[in-house]
Nucleic acid binder design. Structure first.
Lengths: 334, 334
DNA sequence: TTGTAGGCGTTATCAC
DNA sequence: GTGATAACGCCTACAA
């Protein structure tokens, strides 16, 4: 490995001078000397050692990205947005999968700190007040929260506006003339970014109120959609549309509907949320809401870099608008 | 930030001694002194600076993972396998998206080198003889190739055995009694890991030969499947099954089939390859071949770490077997 | 315009 | 057992 020292010797100058041209502090270096040094660097295939540089500058140009599971289809787009943006600004990103386990989160935060990353983007199901996240605020480590819990302390974070997304969807369904609209949500504990509240607001704007008999709890999985729809049907509820809190739930609900001889969207319209890959391929193609994943990664990274560079954030919390994706699973109510 | 120096001072010992207990070289440190140092480290919340350590040990415990696009559904599982394994052995991984562009690949290799990663896992569509990959072999940087081109020089690499996967599939289709079997492959240039060869071998084992009239070229996309199937049908070819080189192709082929009034699998059986998410959700559920993605990441990382630690590889090239996933898109030929 | 010297936080090599 | 001290490769006052 060739070092700055080798270059200096070969060019017959001091280390300082070489360092100057490496860092483009070209003021204070003669044209000839610079030329020569550049030439020698080329010949020797010199590459600066960023580790050594980091030791003195306290900057590694590396970011940490902590998320539950990159294999979960929700995250790759986010990760891509993060990496692209980081790359533009000259940063690299270390990927960490936590499976939402507090111990792994804590471990990664520590390692990342020891490796002196310049900042961390953090997606966790844990609330920010919980211990291992307090680590972050206690350290002087810049960080940005991603999705998940809206924060009470106005920590910097980027969120997908579930309220707005579901509001758009519900309004669309209502515009299509549906009045008996069922809703299959997430499990009780999880607030799910206010999706349910968006649903209620839309009803409200149409002078309606949510009817308890048409509201069921799901689990964000296929099974939840199936079970909820089974209950609805077994109780003999009447409805012309079902709004589901996510796509998997919608797929499950649809399967039961078809089994029971209900045509979708002929007899019952169905909607999802997330726009996972299958949404565009199933029969009928699912009308759903697309999360602004890539953009979330982009925006979060932009914020983080601002933070790292000591610039002020105009806004600590940024909510991004999801997008309504209209396909074929909703038809006009007759 | 508290350093080893602070700890030494607070514990009234030399930094050497502190360093000894940090690195668990407990031989040569008195029990009492160790206790005291441990206590002080705790109190001061000391965390070793891995940058500084790396500067002297020449090891960063960081790996580079270079791939085209983490948002491409093929890679998240691989990345997860890589990260999990790396984590087990105490490494972190830097994620790099190249979009298969040679310039980006070269750039990342350089940055990774400058950041002194201990090794690189590399997935590229470029052939290993091309310039920027030669960088890797020229450097004394350990690396493992992932999927893509089988290598002529027996560089270390992990591959999915496309031959075997397609052989399994074709054999299954033949076992189901089909004799007029069409094949929609990839674009001509790309060898596609010998999938086509696997297909031919299976026919051969059944005393049959591939018939040119039933072979069409695709592009691994929906459009390719549609076009190829349209050609086949327009030419009036007779077949009871179509084997597609990947799932998207199969989905495209199926759409045309249905449009033209052919039932799947009633009239024609269809198979895919890759087992992407939609395969399990479409109607009929697609019989396909699952790539050993997670395992590939796992194995590649294991190899890389061996390389890094200077241990010998029993095998430079490892081929992993894909798995046949039988669903509902193939029925017995009558 | 250029060079000298000190320091970043560790580990490694010797002494004692 | 323990402790100086010299690296590691680079940056940055401060001098010249």
């Amino acid at each position: 490995m060739t070092t700055i020292k080798d270059v200096a010797k070969a060019a017959n100058v001091s280390i300082t001078t070489v360092s100057r041209v490496i860092n483009h502090k070209s003021e204070g270096v003669g044209d000839e000397t610079r030329e020569k040094i550049l030439r020698v660097m080329e010949e020797l295939k010199y590459q600066p050692n960023r580790i050594a540089r980091g030791l003195v500058t306290k900057r590694t140009n590396t970011l940490g990205l902590i998320l539950p599971d990159i294999a979960n289809p929700f995250f790759p787009e986010i990760a891509r947005g993060v990496e692209d943006t980081a790359n533009i600004y000259g940063y690299n990103v270390i990927l960490c999968n936590t499976d939402d386990r507090a111990d792994k989160e804590e471990l990664y935060i520590n390692v990342l700190k020891e490796k002196c990353v310049d900042g961390i983007i953090f997606n966790s199901s844990a609330s920010p007040v919980s211990g291992h996240i307090k680590q972050l605020t206690d350290y002087d480590m810049p960080f940005v929260l991603l999705d998940r819990y809206m924060d009470i302390d106005h920590l910097p974070g980027v969120y997908s506006d579930g309220f707005d997304g579901m509001y758009q969807m519900a309004r669309y369904v209502l515009q299509m003339g549906h009045r008996d609209v069922a809703y299959i949500g997430g499990p009780k504990g999880r607030s799910a970014c206010n999706r349910y509240e968006g649903f209620k607001q839309a009803l409200d704007d149409y002078g309606m109120t949510a009817q308890k008999r048409l509201i069921e709890e799901g689990n964000y999985k296929l099974s939840g959609g199936k079970e909820a729809m089974t209950k609805l049907l077994d109780r003999g509820e009447k409805f012309t549309a079902v709004i589901c809190a996510n796509d998997l739930t919608a797929v499950g609900a649809m399967e039961i509907l078809k089994q029971r001889g209900c045509a979708v969207p002929g007899d019952v319209s169905v909607t999802g949320f997330d726009d996972i890959q299958i949404a565009g391929f199933m029969e009928p193609k699912l009308t759903t809401v697309a999360q602004p994943c890539y953009e979330m990664g982009e925006v979060a990274t932009g914020m983080l870099i601002k933070l790292i560079e000591g610039r002020e954030l105009e806004q600590a919390e940024i909510k991004l608008k999801p997008q309504l994706v209209i396909r074929n699973s909703v038809k006009k109510a007759t």
